[in-house]
Nucleic acid binder design. Structure first.
Length: 287
DNA sequence: CATGCGTGGGT
DNA sequence: TACCCAAGCAT
């Protein structure tokens, strides 16, 4: 028996009121929200999303702006390469799709920064098509409720088929099941401390029925330490450039990272990624 | 398939 | 305090 019906019923009364669930929210808004939600928590996304859509209400609006403006508006959401990719996606939508966010998964997948999750999320949430949508929340709910495993482990090809197997036939039911199971994973079946007392499928959860066995399988790789990392230095340099109206000199860059070897490596990476461009003897966000 | 890629809040 | 974790993607 599928976990979809009980979870969908629960969602009707318990789903959060989020901007991208408002009636009339555009496909472009959905695409922007999904980019921002790639590894950034909901509460941090909401204010940036609303600013973004006020400033660039359509893909063509963003495509007409310098990519550096997108990087600056991204602010401290993290992983600024997503801002660059979103700008590039807006250009592609404007040039190849007459300014309309594409409906079909292959066309969405062809956009920069769009992978399996985002492509299906847009096709389903913005356009109502029937596809399995698989994010880490859904993988965790399936791992527990269906497979009896406490953790989802690394993402795998099998995940899409697992979700397809519990997806209702009807288009509207399938859409609701995707949203509802994702929401369950986000607010009830959480990674750290699941609230099984509030779970609508507790009575059919294989993990709970087995007595919460410890996870034995392959784990998703743990992130490396952030303090002192190249990633931290990249972030410090980007924050400095975002805050400056004028190009930043090499000496000024050195103020955020005294270790020359690491500073040079981080800057070279940012230049290679196109997040920073060199002008004369200084650095700035791209045009 | 493993790794690198930001940032901030939770435990 | 040190992790852990968050609607992933590209290589």
């Amino acid at each position: 028996m599928s976990i979809a019906p009980a979870t969908s019923d629960w969602f009707e009364g318990n789903g959060r009121d989020l901007p991208w669930r408002r009636p009339g929210f555009t496909a472009w808004g959905t695409l922007v929200s999904e980019f921002m939600l790639q590894q950034t928590p909901v509460v941090r996304v909401i204010p940036r999303l609303e600013e973004w859509l006020d400033r660039w209400p359509t893909p063509a609006d963003l495509a007409a702006a310098p990519s550096g403006d997108a990087v600056r508006a991204w602010a401290s959401l993290g992983y600024p390469r997503r801002a660059l990719a979103l700008h590039a996606a807006a250009v592609a939508i404007t040039e190849r799709h007459v300014g309309v966010v594409p409906h079909d998964v292959p066309s969405l997948l062809a956009l920069p920064g769009v992978g399996d999750y985002t492509a299906r999320a847009v096709a389903v949430f913005a356009y109502g098509h029937r596809h399995p949508v698989v994010d880490v929340n859904i993988r965790r709910v399936i791992a527990r409720a269906v497979h009896g495993q406490g953790e989802p482990g690394p993402a795998a090809k099998r995940d899409l088929a697992d979700m397809e197997a519990i997806l209702p036939e009807s288009v509207t039911d399938a859409r609701r099941a995707n949203v509802a199971i994702m929401e369950l994973g986000a607010v009830v079946c959480t990674a750290r401390s699941p609230r099984c007392d509030a779970c609508p499928i507790a009575d059919q959860c294989a993990w709970r029925l087995a007595g919460y066995p410890a996870f034995e399988g392959k784990r998703a790789p743990v992130q490396k330490k952030f303090a002192g990392s190249d990633r931290q230095v990249r972030g410090l340099i980007m924050a400095e450039l975002r805050a400056s109206d004028v190009p930043v000199t090499a000496d000024e860059v050195a103020l955020v990272c005294a270790l020359e070897e690491q500073r040079v490596r981080a800057l070279a990476g940012l230049l290679a990624d196109g997040l920073v461009v060199a002008v004369d003897d200084a650095y700035q966000l791209p045009d």
